[in-house]
């Protein structure tokens, strides 16, 4: 299995996912290209049905893409079998579900929840306690999920996801069922995990989450609409060279046409609405 040469932890190319439903086939992802560097926290946002969960489940090795490739740490998940994907999930890929109770085994204490994953990932079990300390659950080591609040449960879920140095943590709307205070603490936890170098990908609708994360991928109708990084908005160019306009700009291009101008000197491409009075420039 080849390692990516770019240093990206996650690399998606032409990712397509089609579900078969009773009413017909549903195309959840329509050729997504996405690179996520190592040690980065990325938010995936977009309207419901935009393909966020599908993208995350594919990146987490829980589902297979219909077409395209997903490479995590150089391993193409599309090329490996279910057994290998299980191993990857056990060692490198962590997934945090939306509902806190879905992330925890009800009969295990907090320490046991995390230690179980730590041991599986070749860590000494003691790492569990350290991780719980790190997410501020040191006083809750022997509590079972039912004895924890929703926020604590979700932080515990992140702790068990992060223990053992996974490559990537996939979190599907982790604050959706939490109040503001608990959401903040969960985000603090994500910040803490970020320090360990783990890559975190969070699907969310929560503005509070988006505000705290510098790298945001906007997904709409199964395709990347834009990428925002530290206040900058980037248009996504897929592997065929197509550019998607950033959100809210579509109406500025009446007739669905834009004028492209590539400045060799400035080294940039200008995309502007078509002016009916302007004569097309002829290249001599």
């Amino acid at each position: 299995m080849d390692r990516t040469e770019t240093g990206d932890r996650v690399r998606c190319r032409g990712l397509v996912k089609i579900y078969s439903a009773a009413t017909g086939q549903v195309q959840a992802l329509r050729g997504v290209d996405l690179d996520i560097p190592a040690g980065r926290v990325v938010a995936v946002v977009g309207p419901s049905g935009g393909g966020k969960s599908s993208l995350l489940r594919i990146m987490a090795g829980l589902e297979r893409a219909t077409a395209g490739s997903v490479t995590v740490d150089g391993i193409d998940l599309a090329q490996v079998g279910s057994r290998a994907r299980r191993r990857l999930r056990a060692r490198l890929l962590s997934h945090v579900y939306q509902r806190p109770v879905d992330n925890l085994i009800s009969h295990l204490t907090a320490a046991q929840q995390v230690a179980r994953v730590a041991v599986r990932r070749g860590q000494r079990p003691d790492a569990a306690v350290a991780m719980l300390e790190r997410v501020d659950l040191g006083t809750r080591l022997d509590h079972r999920p039912g004895e924890l609040s929703g926020g604590e449960q979700q932080r515990l879920a992140f702790a068990r996801a992060a223990v053992g140095a996974p490559s990537i943590i996939i979190a599907d709307e982790p604050t959706a069922e939490l109040d503001s205070a608990n959401s903040t603490r969960v985000l603090d936890t994500i910040d803490l995990l970020f320090e360990t170098g783990v890559t975190v990908v969070v699907a969310t609708h929560d503005p509070q989450v988006v505000e705290r994360i510098d790298h945001v991928v906007i997904l709409r109708d199964g395709a990347i609409e834009a990428i925002e990084e530290r206040g900058r908005t980037y248009a996504a160019i897929d592997h065929t060279g197509r550019i998607q306009l950033p959100p809210g700009l579509h109406h500025r291009f009446p007739g669905g046409r834009a004028v492209l101008a590539w400045s060799q000197e400035a080294g940039h491409l200008t995309v502007r609405p078509d002016d009916p009075g302007e004569q097309p420039r002829r290249d001599s």
Partner: peptide, 23 residues
Amino acid sequence: GLDWGESLGVFNGDARGHRGQNG
């Protein structure tokens, strides 16, 4: 030979200071 977290075995003291709340 441990990572940072491993060096921090944590006990909670109770009001009497003799037994941890959970540990």
